[in-house]
Design a protein around this nucleic acid. Structure first.
Lengths: 99, 99
DNA sequence: TGGGTTGACCCGTGTAACGTTACGGGTTAT
DNA sequence: ATAACCCGTAACGTTACACGGGTCAACCCA
């Protein structure tokens, strides 16, 4: 129902690479990944892997969580597109809800 | 460096299934997944997939995010075990840090 | 015009979630 | 004891995907 969350790769491209005038080739080398891997990421063909998040975090001195959370929102958005319907609610009347 | 975060499957088993006296077979059926899938999850052999998180969320009326975050912490913990070393810092002196 | 960059594509590899099926061990009820 | 469950697990196959290597056409720019 919500709008599709921004892909972390787009953020990385706009907010990091462009301001620093870094090419995909350069940035890929600095991150220690292949040009292809980074290219697919910034072009939203691939999602953010935990390892890539760690690399970006180290290279840009930002928090891993912030990047992971971006991906998580996207992942969750995709999941909601194929929402499972055959789920039977648990009888949790007796259980105190903590969340 | 922190201690290994709790696996969401363990939480699901202890805080949901046990209090409700649900067997793996019963819970799997209610969630709409195979017995094996749930068994591997609660026994920490498989991680929490987004779809599984959605199912658990719907069945137990809890937030998807809370479950996803548990998994994310675990995933990140694993990632830190194989921390990438060949990462060259970006020259971000000119960029204002927003995070 | 020639060099660097880029995105798309193919191929191959490793990982992982999931389903189905089947087995053996354990518990409980008949 | 025999049947009925429940459980963990293993094998097999499917599907998805991150990643690397290589190639190639398009493109921009000096």
């Amino acid at each position: 129902m919500d709008r599709k969350p921004t892909h972390p790769g787009a953020v990385f491209l706009e907010d990091i690479m462009k301001p620093l005038n870094l090419t995909v080739t350069e940035a890929a080398h600095m991150l220690g990944v292949s040009r292809k891997a980074l290219s697919e990421f910034v072009n939203e063909k691939a999602s953010l892997s935990p390892e890539m998040a760690l690399r970006i975090s180290k290279a840009t001195n930002t928090s891993v969580e912030s990047w992971m959370n971006m991906q998580q929102k996207l992942t969750l958005w995709y999941a909601y597109q194929h929402e499972p319907t055959n789920v039977i609610p648990f009888p949790l009347d007796a259980v105190k809800k903590r969340m």
